[in-house]
């Protein structure tokens, strides 16, 4: 129509925030709480939503998604919990070592790629490690509407059981915790069997756990649509490579510790994105030509599209002689 042409901005709307609290929870996980700098209330959100945090790391901009784990109805504070990843590309290290109470940051409006199916008679949650975070906000939401839920949470050790004490104290009959170091594991088959009709299952955790829940549920006859998952894909580091961006007529280098999307942005080329985790589809980019191998890590493209047609630059990489993209 073009009544008032406006160019779509990449990414979700931004909110300016101040870090109102930094709360170490255990050796690996720290909670960060935010308040808006303009004093306005935050938008409410739906359980399972995430926000993308912008980090200014010595001239380099990092954008990492984190699940919102505060009460969605609390419009004064947003909270995220960040697990330190010593092998990763540094976003979580930046949060742990550099971010202090009182710092000003930018985060996006909530985006939900892992929402509750509100038709469900019962919500069955499976969390592994830091995968607990989206369930924290879902539990808040369901508690307000008398929702029927149950959590099965597997952690490495008691010392690393993020929010275990709080959850067990508040919901002693609904929360079940399993400790790896005590050789406990979620009795998945038994749990999937014998659920009331209309139960939906949700899993968030390491990839192995997600695959296990999907496969077991599928074998037990659960419809795919009733098993929901969220895997946080952090862009993995990899060998540097060169890319030609046709539309903008630029050749760029993708460094070992940055994603292809970040390298595109660093070159001043605007590229669409939303989740930066391979799940939303926004950053989909056409491949013009290539000579080499793709390292696809997204959950978005079909296998035939991954065979040289498209790439998701937020998480995927390339090794080989040359790559030309339509960007």
């Amino acid at each position: 129509m073009s009544a008032a042409p406006q160019k779509a901005k990449p990414g979700a709307e931004q909110l300016a925030v101040r870090v109102s609290a930094v709360v170490p929870l255990n050796d690996l996980v720290t909670r960060f709480e935010f308040q808006r700098t303009d004093g306005q209330p935050f938008p409410t959100f739906s359980g399972g939503a995430h926000t993308v945090v912008t980090m200014q790391d010595d001239g380099r901009t990092r954008l990492n998604p984190y699940s919102l784990m505060s009460d969605p109805a609390d419009t004064s504070t947003y909270a995220i919990s960040v697990r330190r990843d010593d092998q990763g590309r540094g976003g979580s290290l930046f949060m742990h070592t550099r971010v202090k109470q009182g710092d000003e940051m930018t985060i996006t409006y909530p985006v939900n790629l892992f929402s509750l199916d509100l038709r469900a008679r019962k919500h069955l949650f499976f969390a592994g490690g830091i995968g607990i975070t989206p369930f924290m906000s879902m539990i808040h939401q369901l508690e307000q509407s008398n929702g029927n839920w149950e959590l099965h949470y597997s952690v490495r050790t008691e010392a690393l059981g993020t929010y275990v004490d709080e959850l067990k104290y508040k919901f002693p009959t609904k929360v079940h915790v399993y400790y790896d170091d005590q050789s406990q594991s979620i009795p998945l088959e038994t749990l999937l069997d014998g659920q009331p009709l209309g139960t939906n299952a949700y899993v968030c955790g390491p990839k192995g756990m997600i695959d296990w829940v999907h496969a077991t549920a599928s074998a037990a006859g659960w419809p795919d649509a009733q098993v929901h998952s969220e895997e946080f894909l952090a862009p993995a580091p990899g060998k540097p490579f060169e890319v030609r961006l046709c539309k903008s007529d630029k050749t760029i280098q993708v460094g070992e510790n940055e994603s292809l999307l970040e390298a595109i942005e660093r070159a001043g080329v605007e590229a669409p994105f939303l989740c930066r985790g391979g799940a939303c589809g926004q950053c989909e980019t056409d491949v013009v030509s290539y000579d080499g191998e793709f390292i696809h890590r997204d959950h978005w493209l079909e296998p035939e599209q991954q065979a040289g047609e498209k790439i998701m630059p937020c998480v995927s990489r390339f090794v080989g002689k040359s790559l030309e993209l339509d960007r």
Binding site: M1, A3, A12, E13, P43, F45, Y109, P110, V111, L274, C280, G281, Q282
Partner: peptide, 16 residues
């Protein structure tokens, strides 16, 4: 549909 699934809070869209 792809566009609509990705409409986010705070960023409404329109058409005629």
């Amino acid at each position: 549909l792809k566009f609509l699934l990705n409409i986010q809070q705070g960023a409404p869209a329109r058409r005629l």
